[in-house]
Write a protein that binds this DNA or RNA. Structure first.
Lengths: 339, 339
DNA sequence: TTGAAAGCGCTAACAT
DNA sequence: ATGTTAGCGCTTTCAA
């Protein structure tokens, strides 16, 4: 598994007729080296195809310029584009991204965190705030700098780059109730190990409970984020008596699955039943009727998470959490009940 | 940016009353250490919260157990799910994934390759076979083990885990022609720096040119993979005289955009015009009519790419490229011309 | 089965 | 502006 022997700093130093320190400087602090020397060194470096050895550098400088991210899965468009922005922002600062996925499982998450730290991550991006004590203890014991994305709350001890899922879900549910819906149901993500999914459900619960009227939340189903599951949950909800007039989904994939299934079942959306989504991914705009959904600033969150983490790693004491707002996007899948 | 000082091997050795070599062994080759000693060491390690320093380990052992991937973008569902599988497979072998994105730009790709190597990647996953000489030279000069994904050809010098884009596009185009279409147009991805997009276009060209009849490829437009671009290209193609009866898209996102735009323009798919996609992502099944498309085994490619790379890094000489087959998935967006 | 000790390649403090 | 040099924490012979 070894690479063939690559040139070392010393090889370059010898070939350029200077000391290793000068080479090191010309790479890391170029302005501290005379132009002429630098040019010569640069030439030699190219000729030899030299690149610094990672281990040596990490050992001597006590940093790797690698940060890690543990996300539920890259296969969910919502995380993929945020992660893309996170990576691009890091890259602009010469920092590289190590990724691992938890599959929404918190034991697995701890394992992955350990792995990333073992592999040299200087800091981490984690998704959501809820995690077992063992995980928090490890993070704390090892004094690991980390940012929490896709979630926001007021805890000043933590660094967040996210939005309030509870509030966003409440906004959506309020919009549904305002239109006159009184029998509402929900298809949410699996709440176990996923505090964002749980917050969205709680937000809907809260909105219905606090509504100045007689609205009722008929049922809440949890499902993994697939079109198929969304469709199945939809069918189940609609087979109840009385059926809901609006179904709030915790995710666009579930909602798109529901819309497609509605059509298969001969139900008209939004005439027979309204359906709402969450996240505003591509799927939401392509399905017919297009989904009324909460737009989540994925790219902004990814970028901000990177900035926060970089600042934190630079020991900038001014670093503070950033709260984003999810935005209600009205499209055709939501309308007043009864057509 | 430094971490607080963590315990070192020497701390553990002192506390356990043995030498550093024994600690090292008990971590890396446990069977070479006596059971009793090992137990004591393990206890001390836990008490101290020791984890090996990454730099020291990398320096001494000349390996990092990190591999890198440079993909065009994680925001494209096609790469996201493949990358997810790649990462999961690596993870099962204790290897961690460093990711970088090229944005379909080959200069940027070289830069990212350098970055990943600088950050300790033992090997790489790259997408597609075509790259500038400078990139190939670097890869070769540094003797970097790498696998090429999402592409396959017969070059025995290289390691591929992919499929033949040319052939797949040809299969799709043949299917279109078989149904009786004679005026065909294409919306492909930007070919500059993207050999897969180019191969798909060439495959269509080839199919039309070799068709035993009078089929004509009216026009080929290139567009970035967005719904909007797909829609715009569609509108442009349909405004020509004569208009195509079938439009082959190099990607499901473009095709979905085209289908949606068709509906906006009052055109019926497939009655007025057939549209086909490529990749078979979620979007293809949700849009109405659903897309006839080529299913690409993204997850399998990701997993295989990981296995190939791991085998290559283990200096297994038996490693050979794997060719996958794309599969034609017939749905409603393609039908004989003229309704 | 265990220990001693020689590096691995680099950075950074200090000296010039 | 450049050189000298002492580690950084670990793995790995070689010896015991």
């Amino acid at each position: 598994m070894n690479k063939t022997d690559n040139p070392t700093l010393e090889d370059v130093a010898r070939a350029a007729g200077v000391s290793t320190a000068t080479i090191s400087r010309s790479i890391n602090e170029p302005d501290k080296v005379a132009q002429k020397t630098r040019d010569r060194i640069c030439e030699v470096i190219n000729k030899l195809g030299y690149t610094p050895n990672f281990g040596g550098r990490a050992l001597a400088s006590k940093r790797t310029n690698i940060v890690g991210a543990v996300i539920p899965t890259m296969a969910n468009a919502m995380f993929a584009s945020g992660l893309q922005a996170f990576q691009e922002t890091l890259s602009a600062s010469g920092v590289t991204l190590l990724v691992a996925s938890s599959g929404y499982n918190s034991d697995h998450e701890l394992e992955q965190i350990r792995t990333l730290i073992t592999h040299g991550a200087d800091g981490l991006l984690l998704i959501g705030a809820a995690r077992p004590k063992a995980t928090m203890d490890f993070l704390h014991l090892r004094n690991i700098p980390f940012v929490i994305g896709w979630h926001y709350d007021n805890d000043p001890q933590r660094l967040f780059a996210g939005f309030d899922n509870h509030k966003a879900a409440q906004v959506m549910c309020d919009a549904v109730l305002q239109l006159g819906h009184r029998r509402v149901a929900m298809i949410g993500g699996i709440t176990d190990g996923n505090d964002r999914a749980k917050s969205r459900i709680d937000g809907v619960r809260h909105a219905v409970a606090n509504f100045a009227g007689d609205a009722v939340l008929l049922d809440i189903l949890e499902a993994d984020y697939t079109l198929e599951n969304g469709g199945n949950a939809f069918a189940k909800l609609m087979s109840a008596t009385p059926a809901p007039t609006a179904i709030i989904c915790g995710n666009d994939v579930l909602a798109a699955g529901a819309v497609v299934r509605a059509s298969d079942l001969g139900l008209k959306v939004p005439d027979d039943v309204s359906i709402t989504g969450f996240d505003d991914i591509n799927l939401a705009t392509v399905v017919r009727p297009a989904l009324t959904t909460m737009r989540v600033p994925q790219t902004d969150m990814g970028r901000s998470a990177a900035r926060l983490l970089l600042a934190r790693l630079a020991e900038n004491r001014q670093v503070r959490s950033i709260e984003f707002e999810a935005e209600l996007i009205r499209r055709q899948s939501l309308a007043p009940p009864g057509g």
